[in-house]
Design a protein around this nucleic acid. Structure first.
Lengths: 219, 219
DNA sequence: CCGGTTATTGGCACAACGCCAACAAGCACG
DNA sequence: CGTGCTTGTTGGCGTTGTGCCAATAACCGG
């Protein structure tokens, strides 16, 4: 009868770590950085506050890691087997997968898009930038099967990125503002893609040869 | 010779206020919220720290007001007299004005775009949302002279917003990544606009009548 | 059963924020 | 030219939250 219930249970390193990370991700999604205290995260995870710093260092580090997992998770719709099929059919399916993913992870996606204010935050910027580059790579890989995405010309990458901007705004108009039905969002994404890569691409390439690359503006 | 130099000079209410606001805007643009202390803002403005709270309340309030002035200032390129002239000519001029504004306020615009992390911040969201709505209104007013912008159908607003997303991404590809020359950015913005409002609009409207408005998704 | 490893805790120290009462700069009036 | 009043401005105090560290105890291997 000496079996005394332990005051706390001891978890494996990664297990406890991901547990804290899960709660942190949820809280940081609901409110902005300053409105979430480490004490609250600790309470939600059922651990002492000090443990958070033991695993993640500073509160900001935890935030950045949560952001990292947030943006790298839901942004990759499963690419289907797209061998040698009709391109327009593939596009239509890709748009549908995107819309489907959105309607399933609505809250997550909106939160991941982020709504902080302004200011240069190089850490946050690089995380988001990497995520966007990966997304662009996926699109390029789907458009040019067999070729290396990194080998695509810069203005082509830029064009994909521009379309991504259009897609992001379109998705938000559907999900948040309700100014588009799902059908309309689909049409906009589908036709927008065709328009951008059918005619706009030609114009951009023409502008590229007409006026040879002027000096790149430094970041 | 009893003229003693005063230890500090007394400014008018709005004058001191805008002075603090200027320095706060600069600092918040360079670094993220947490990396800027009220003490630093006070030091930069040459005032006591307490004065900041006297004028703006909390640090967050100051931040929000700085953001407010930031997004409402540089985003409005001066609309020229666009009476009954050639639409395509007007578009070309509008694009040039936009590019010109960008190259002049490069740092400001990039900072105002924000290096957001994630999380829902209703205050920040509404400020940014208002700014975007105003920008959309300006574009609609330019496209439909004499009509009330608010009277435009929702899917039209959404389309303008989608184009704005494309324009934002395009601008960043030029300014920050240098993957587009200015000429290419101009071509992309110009042709993209035509493509979106020539053919995509038709498809979106068709999708609207084909599938009548389903229930709006609440914010 | 017992000693070692290490996950976990609780509390201390420090920095930053919010607030408030006292002070003084400049103006109006005598 | 002095004097009192208005209010812009200051300095410091209390509180909150973060970062860190030494002590503790849960679990595993011998």
């Amino acid at each position: 009868m000496t079996a005394v219930a332990p005051r706390w249970n001891r978890l494996e390193h990664d297990e406890r770590r991901s547990q804290i990370l899960t709660h942190a991700r949820r809280l940081f999604s609901e409110r902005h950085f300053g409105a979430v205290s480490t004490a609250e995260i600790a309470r939600a995870a059922g651990v002492a506050r000090g443990l958070i710093h033991h695993y993640f260092g500073t509160k900001r580090d935890l935030y950045l890691e949560a952001l990292q997992t947030m943006v790298s998770m839901p942004l990759q719709p499963v690419p289907a087997e797209l061998d040698g099929r009709d391109p327009e059919q593939l596009l239509a399916e890709g748009v549908d997968r995107w819309l489907e993913m959105l309607s399933r992870n609505r809250e997550t996606w909106i939160a991941a898009r982020g709504a902080q204010g302004f200011g240069r935050d190089s850490d946050v910027e690089s995380i988001l930038e990497d995520a966007r580059e990966n997304a662009v790579d996926e699109v390029i890989a789907a458009m040019r099967p067999g070729e290396e995405p990194a080998a695509a010309p810069p203005e082509f990458r830029a064009l994909v990125r521009a379309y991504a901007g259009l897609a992001e705004a379109t998705s938000l108009e559907w999900l948040q503002h309700g100014r588009l039905t799902r059908e309309q969002a689909r049409a906009l994404l589908y036709e927008g893609f065709i328009a951008v890569f059918r005619q706009v691409l030609i114009a951009v390439e023409a502008a590229g040869v007409a006026a040879p690359p002027q000096k790149a503006i430094p970041a």
